[in-house]
Every structure is written in structure tokens, then in C-alpha cells.
């Protein structure tokens, strides 16, 4: 299979240029020009205005917290799953993808029902004589929504790298005198770095840029950077400003991509 099928790649190359490269170029074009078409950095520096900076700061804060929580929840789970020795690798992936077959907006909305003042969770807490919690329409509800929506994207890459670790390598570590704590920190954790990086990327980027979760669970008061950009496009119709803020957002995404390229050269941490 050599030069003969060089032309085979042309449909995909054409498609990528048309629908990936050029559109990204357009964002840069709009982001770096004003309404008259003249070059300007104003749309980028607009991030420094109090309103935008606050939204970006809140987005960063909530997405980092969510990513950390996802990691802490997912790592033990991925270890448990990878130790189960289920032959059915695909089954494990399936149970995490299955929820996606129920619309993600509805699933997120369902948390309203669960979290409401007289909702399911508070009723249970009440029944157990525990203090109720009132987190709906607060940043906490947004964090919960983020963790809920993106947790599978952390579990799957971790599960993937952990289940690929050779059992013999762990035996070798024990054989050389290492206890389970030592084996975890010196062998398992370093070997799972590609999965960790990939998981962090898969959670952090959508959490940082979401506008849906904040709309559904945060009430209308809490604005994330995603909400600001979305409004510039759908309500204010200031595409230049929206594009400029998107470029700022992409800087964070690119930083994340560079980090994952450094740590995961082999692409071992992929989700599938």
C-alpha cells in the first residue's frame, strides 16, 4: 500500500482544510479586526475588563476544581475497574458511554430536580435527619454538573492506561521489596501519567468553556466565560468581540495541548 493510494487522503485533507483550518482562521480574522475590518487588539484586551476577567477567573476556578474532583473520584474507580479482570474491556467503556444516550441537557436538568430545596436529595437527607443542602443556582451546583458530565472522560483514559500495566511489573516491584504504597507512587502512578494528562485535558477544556451547565444549574446570575462568548454571538451579535475572547480561551486550550503532547507522545492515554 504505497504511492498508489496517495490520492486517497485527498478527501480528508480537503475536508480538514475546509472545515477545521479555515474556520479557525476566521476566528482569528474576526478576533483581530473591528467592524470596519481594520486590525485591532481591542477584542483580545477586552478580557481585562472587570466583567470579562471575572467570568474568566470564575471559569478557571470552577473548571480546575471540577478537574481535581474528577481526578480524585476517577483514579480509585479506574484502579478498581482495571483490577476486576473483566475480559469485557468494551463493557466497561459501554457503561460510561451509555448515559450519553439520554440527552445531556435533560440529564443535567434532572439535577435540578434532585438538588431542589424540596428535591430528592434533600428529602433523603431530611429523612436521615441530616442538614439539607441548598446548592442549586450556586457555583457548587455548576461544579457538580461539570463533575457529573465529564467524569467518564476522566475514568476512561485512566482505566485504559491502568489496565495496560503488566501484572508482572507490579510483581517485580514487590519482588524487589517495595510495599504497596511504594509500588503505587513509584510504579503505578508514573506509568499512568499519559492517562492522567489525557483525562485532565478531556475534563478541563469542556469545563472551562461550557455555557450550558452554568445556564442550567447556575441560574441566570452566574456568568462563565462560555456564557459571555455565547451571548456575544447569539444576543449582542458582536462577533469580533466573541472571536477575540475565543482566542483568549484557545490560548488556555493550546497550553493544555502542548502539555499533553509532551507527556503523552505515544497517544497511550486515548479514551477508546
Amino acid at each position: 500500500m504505497t504511492s498508489k493510494n496517495k490520492w486517497l487522503s485527498s478527501p480528508y485533507i480537503l475536508w480538514s482544510v475546509m472545515f477545521i483550518i479555515i474556520p479557525l482562521g476566521m476566528i482569528f480574522y474576526y478576533g483581530l479586526t473591528d467592524k470596519t475590518g481594520a486590525f485591532t487588539l481591542e477584542n483580545i484586551t477586552a478580557i481585562a475588563t472587570a466583567e470579562h476577567a471575572k467570568a474568566l477567573w470564575l471559569s478557571l476556578l470552577l473548571s480546575i476544581i471540577s478537574t481535581v474532583i474528577c481526578f480524585l473520584l476517577a483514579y480509585p474507580l479506574a484502579m478498581i475497574l482495571s483490577n476486576m479482570k473483566v475480559n469485557q474491556h468494551s463493557f466497561i467503556i459501554l457503561i460510561f458511554i451509555l448515559p450519553m444516550w439520554m440527552n445531556f441537557l435533560l440529564r443535567t436538568l434532572a439535577w435540578q430536580t434532585l438538588l431542589e430545596k424540596n428535591g430528592v436529595i434533600n428529602s433523603i437527607l431530611n429523612f436521615l435527619h441530616l442538614p439539607g443542602m441548598n446548592i442549586i443556582n450556586t457555583p457548587y451546583a455548576i461544579i457538580l454538573g461539570m463533575v457529573y458530565n465529564f467524569l467518564p472522560f476522566m475514568v476512561l483514559p485512566l482505566y485504559n492506561v491502568l489496565s495496560k500495566i503488566d501484572e508482572n511489573v507490579l510483581d517485580a516491584s514487590r519482588d524487589l521489596g517495595a510495599g504497596s504504597v511504594h509500588t503505587f507512587f513509584r510504579i503505578i502512578l508514573p506509568l499512568s501519567i499519559p492517562g492522567i494528562i489525557s483525562g485532565i485535558t478531556m475534563v478541563f477544556v469542556p469545563a472551562l468553556t461550557t455555557f450550558v451547565i452554568s445556564t442550567l444549574l447556575g441560574g441566570s446570575k452566574i456568568l462563565l466565560i462560555g456564557n459571555v462568548i455565547e451571548q456575544e454571538f447569539t444576543q449582542a451579535s458582536n462577533w469580533h468581540l466573541g472571536s477575540g475572547l475565543s482566542i483568549v480561551l484557545m490560548i488556555f486550550i493550546i497550553l493544555n495541548m502542548i502539555a499533553s503532547a509532551i507527556f503523552d507522545k505515544e497517544g497511550e492515554g486515548s479514551m477508546l
Binding site: 474556520p23 468553556t209 472571536s243 480561551l249 486550550i253
Partner: peptide
């Protein structure tokens, strides 16, 4: 290039296509 739509934010992909 293949990885861009996967790693990029959906909102950015969405508005970039809209502009296109």
C-alpha cells in the same frame, strides 16, 4: 489536525463553523 476538533472547545468549533 484530526485532534483539533477533539481537543478544542466545542464552543470554539461551533462559532468557527458558524463564521465559515
Amino acid at each position: 489536525i484530526t485532534n483539533i476538533p477533539m481537543l478544542n472547545a466545542e464552543i470554539v468549533t461551533g462559532i468557527s463553523l458558524m463564521l465559515l
